[in-house]
Structures are given as C-alpha cells and as structure tokens.
C-alpha cells in the first residue's frame, strides 16, 4: 500500500481506520429516527394511537366505573392511568425492534456487522432508537394527565421522563433480544404475543399487587413493569398515601432490570458462530 499511484481525481491519502464507538452509536441512532419520520404511517400511528386509546378507555371506563374506587380511595380511571401509559410504551418498545428483522432482511445489518465497531454499539444504537420513539409516544399520553387530576410540575415531569425512558429502554432491549435470532416478522409476533399481555396484566396496571395472592404476587414482583407502573403512579400522584414501593427503589429496580436485559441482548448479538450471520 506504500506505493499509491495517484491519477486523476484520486488524491486521497491512505488513512488508518479508527473505531469511534460513540460516533457509530449516534449515527445509527439518528438513522432509526430518520427512518421513522420518513414513514408517514408510523408517525401517524405514534401520535394518534395514545389519543384514540384514551378516547376509548376514558369514555368507556369513565361511565362504567364512576363510583368504584379500586385502590386507596382513587377513582379507577385514576388508578388505571399509569398502567395505560405503560401499555403504550410496552407495545411501541417491543414492536420497534421489528426493525432488527427488517435490517437483516434488507441487508443493512450485514454492512453494519462487517464494520469495525463493537457489537455493543450496534445494540445500544438500536435500543436507544426504539427507546426514544416509545418514550415520545408515552409522553404524548401525558396530555391527558390533567383529566385524571394529575398536575405535572417541572421536577415531576423530569421524573416521569426518566421513568418512561427506563421502562422503554428495558422493554426495547427485550424486544431486541427476541428479534435478534428471528428470521421473520411472523415468528417475532408469535413469541412476543406469548409474554406481551401477561407482562402487562401482571404489572399492577389493572389490579393492585396488594390484593394479589400467592404465585401471582410473586410473578408481579418479578415483573419489571410492576416497578414502572408503581414509580409512575408515585410520580404522577405524589399526594397519594404511601406508595407500595418507595419511588427511589422502584427506579433502582428498573435500572437493574434494564442493565440485565441489555446485557442479554448484547451477549446474543456479540456471539460469533459457525452459522451464517444473516
């Protein structure tokens, strides 16, 4: 390579290729967002689905459960609100990771896999991309907070953003881990459907953990979403009497869960094998 003959337009000196992990992460993350907003149907879906969701839930539950007070003297709609936000985040987080399968199919993933960057950069960029999108969608849902009597101040908003982002990150990592080995979107759907609804039902979104018994209670305690819902409830209604878990510990548990699921996603993606990568 020492004797580079230069002819015509070719005057580039040879340069050593450096790996800049954060540049790669930022670039791949940005690509996720650009791809998202260039697909109009996805943008419409993200903005409209929380609105439609609340319209249906709000008008339905509003009349059916007006008198019922499910937990700690709250109206059910009030009780349900954090769980509804988590549900939106849950669906969006998991399903944005279908893009892993798309990237594999379209060949884009291959060109990333042969680049001299750490696999953790690839996983982190994909997961952060999904996290950003689903957190935005979750936060759009906050416009209905006043309807359930939650008035959000600045610090409170910061806290809610943090919780929503953590939940999104955890779930997006989970989606990545599932999507990585999948060959088709159908396969992904099949696997995801197995745990998506149970995950949500057993998160305290519908019924409180205090009323649950035995093994259901154990499952709820092992479910990261439980801590997301609880933390969100505590952040939205700070005046509410004694949250079941202190806000700080809920957030800590969420962070630990996120780290563990991300590590699993990374380990899966980092494995090199004697099977074709795509």
């Amino acid at each position: 390579m020492a004797q580079t003959t230069t002819l015509g337009a070719i005057t580039q000196p040879a340069h050593p290729v450096r790996s800049r992990t954060w540049l790669a992460v930022a670039s791949l993350w940005w690509r996720e967002l650009v791809r998202f907003y260039r697909q109009r149907s996805r943008v419409i879906g993200v903005i409209l689905s929380p609105l439609v969701f609340w319209l249906v839930i709000g008008s339905g539950f509003g009349t059916s459960f007006r008198s019922g007070s499910a937990a700690g003297g709250q109206h059910y709609l009030e009780y349900f609100y954090p769980g509804a936000l988590i549900m939106i985040v849950l669906f969006t987080s998991i399903f944005t990771m279908m893009s892993v399968i798309e990237d594999r199919k379209e060949g884009f993933l291959l060109s990333v896999l042969v680049a001299p960057i750490s696999r953790s950069a690839i996983v982190l960029a994909k997961v952060l991309g999904g996290t950003t999108l689903s957190a935005i969608q979750g936060l759009i849902f906050l416009v209905f907070a006043p309807a359930v009597g939650a008035h959000i101040g600045g610090a409170q908003f910061g806290l809610i953003v943090l919780i929503t982002a953590l939940v999104s990150f955890c779930l997006t990592s989970l989606g990545f881990a599932v999507a990585w080995k999948m060959e088709s979107a159908q396969g992904f759907h099949a696997v995801v459907n197995l745990f998506l609804i149970p995950l949500w039902l057993l998160s305290g979104a519908l019924f409180p953990i205090t009323g649950a018994s035995g093994w259901i209670r154990a499952l709820m305690l092992a479910n990261p979403l439980t801590y997301g819902v609880e933390a969100l409830r505590a952040a939205l209604f700070p005046a509410m009497a004694s949250p079941r878990f202190p806000l700080g510990s809920s957030i800590a548990v969420l962070a630990v869960f996120s780290a563990v699921v991300f590590a699993v996603a990374f380990l899966l993606a980092n494995r090199r094998s004697t099977k074709p990568a795509a």
Partner: peptide, 12 residues
C-alpha cells in the same frame, strides 16, 4: 464488503 443483496438503506 459489497454484498449480493442491497445493504443500502432505501429510506435514506
């Protein structure tokens, strides 16, 4: 590396 299948992102 230039793969047989396209690896460029069509949306970009």
């Amino acid at each position: 590396v230039v793969f047989q299948a396209a690896s460029v992102d069509a949306k970009l």
